[in-house]
Design a binder for these strands. Sequence first.
DNA 1: GTTAGCACTCATCCAAGAAGAGTGCTAACA
DNA 2: TGTTAGCACTCTTCTTGGATGAGTGCTAAC
Lengths: 348, 348
Amino acid sequence: MAEVLNERSQNILEAIVEDYITSAEPVGSRAITRRHSFNLSPASVRNVMSDLEEMGFLCSPHTSAGRIPTEKAFHYYIDSLLQIQDLSKEEELRLRKKYRFQGMRIEDIMREVGRVMSGLSNYTGLVMAPKFASTVFRQIEFIRLSYGRLLVIYVSETGLVQNKVIEADPDLGPRELEKISNYLNHKLNGMSILEVRETLAAELKTERSRYDQLQKQALDLSRAALQDETEDTVFVSGTSLMLEQPEFSTPDRMKRIIRTLESKKTLIELLDRSQAAQGVQIFIGSQSQHVEIEGCSLVTSNFSNKKGAIGTLGVIGPVRMPYSQVIPIVDFTAQLVSRILEREAEYE
Amino acid sequence: MAEVLNERSQNILEAIVEDYITSAEPVGSRAITRRHSFNLSPASVRNVMSDLEEMGFLCSPHTSAGRIPTEKAFHYYIDSLLQIQDLSKEEELRLRKKYRFQGMRIEDIMREVGRVMSGLSNYTGLVMAPKFASTVFRQIEFIRLSYGRLLVIYVSETGLVQNKVIEADPDLGPRELEKISNYLNHKLNGMSILEVRETLAAELKTERSRYDQLQKQALDLSRAALQDETEDTVFVSGTSLMLEQPEFSTPDRMKRIIRTLESKKTLIELLDRSQAAQGVQIFIGSQSQHVEIEGCSLVTSNFSNKKGAIGTLGVIGPVRMPYSQVIPIVDFTAQLVSRILEREAEYE
DNA sequence: GTTAGCACTCATCCAAGAAGAGTGCTAACA
DNA sequence: TGTTAGCACTCTTCTTGGATGAGTGCTAAC
């Protein structure tokens, strides 16, 4: 895997990858000598390229086209050749100016983050909120809407707000609801939703809940409120930017990629996978194991607050992506969002 | 505008429109005599077609292609020729089975309605929630999140729930908040958001609010809570179905339509326009005055509960749309959603 | 008024040839 | 021994031109 290339080969591979990133077209030996000053003739470059092809870094679509870097080349490029400079102060300021989320709800923030990130990178932005079931309980409140109907507000440790309407005993008055929510908030504080569900199930079986009417009601209500798995929410922004990429210029590929971005299923699986890791992650092409996004790369990072990881964001585009620009954008964005959420979740 | 055609011309125009709807290709005189039994020769049909072209109902892409119905033909077809049969009991049942929204929040219902409607019609579904500013106040509640931070829950007359985090005086206790929300709920009940804003502004100027600390706080809080215009929410489902249509088969058109559906701006304008009207509305092609959706038609209808119109839904597709199928679907869906929302908003 | 016949038009398809880009090999050079 | 110039070869792309066929419009006959 970790093949070692001599300096000349590295330089030429780097040149090919970078030329290909900007042009999206097979790179020929002459083009390289023209654009880069290696003091080598096209013929010498050809020899090196031939070697690189032998090693699996390059491939040629046909005899008389130039060569295209393979996914292996991109891996090598990213691992060994790519120098990621941090954002300069000016750039950081510029990005920071784009991100303004005062008093927005978390969902709106995520949507907007996706939009901005997509705009900055010129690729399709992805933001995934945490799974409901993986959130940590902080607070639950009930609001009487109308006869027998309650609005449940659930706030997670990370500040995610969910609401839902449930049916309930119409005789429950405001005082009782307050008692119920106090009881639940005290009892369930700091538990994960999974623990909450177990606790509720266990409590319902105890003797006491048979006699304590209020407790029984509290348990019933919270079960109804926290029961169903709400689906993962992924915000996809800048879908149409994908269509600008020459690798998706044919109607067939356009259809395929739009369908994939629309259904979100594949995206969720991919973003889920990167949930585990720390820092910026890169999935290149077939590495993802999903045929639907053949030819795509993902650059992702998790965002979190002090209570742990709460979501994943990133950018999807063709394998041929200017990683040196995209990686800092994703990285910075994830850090920024984390900081915002920490501020959001701050206690006194 | 209301040109009258003799029966033969009508029949032939109808045949051409319907053939074109299924084939998406220019219809020739022979094809018509083959598929329909008019007891006329192609030559006679040609004469009629020539007349129809003269009148602006048909056009030919070039000399030796068949003819394509113009938008005028579609208008005529819909106004005079189209017979919309109501859904049969079986179909209605079938649709009804697809629509299941138990205990979902309005937003989820809308998203799901769009999805189902898109699936039923095989075209892109659109659902627009009502503008925040046009909703009618029913209820506001405050939940203390953490030091100085309040979660505001606003429920509109139609059952739309909005929440938002605002900063507030950290010394406000639960009892005071309850008093505040009681005061506001009493005072603002039944007003439109615009009226609410006026009322709040007027109240803040009165003598009393200078002395009554609690009232002042109530007014400040509700102002912060109901202040900003949240953007219109349009749910677009089945975007990729648009790409299946032969009229959007070229990369350029694909890009254009995807961009338009993604930005939602044009869609909002169009859906806004149909807000005013009652029942199913049809916008055909250039009638919409938007170049971005050239070649598209919209079939829309409002949905409402007893308190009035609260949103618009519909389907967008090529002008060449099987209106006889799409119209009942949109109509039925709008009625169904209305009924669901009426149930949702029911008071004791 | 209807229809058969026919010349005409025009898009589409296919094949063949020219152009151009790039390779791989070989032989000469430093 | 590594580097380079030269050259034949390959293969795509673009263009051209002819064949095909669908469809029209006109005219004359029924």
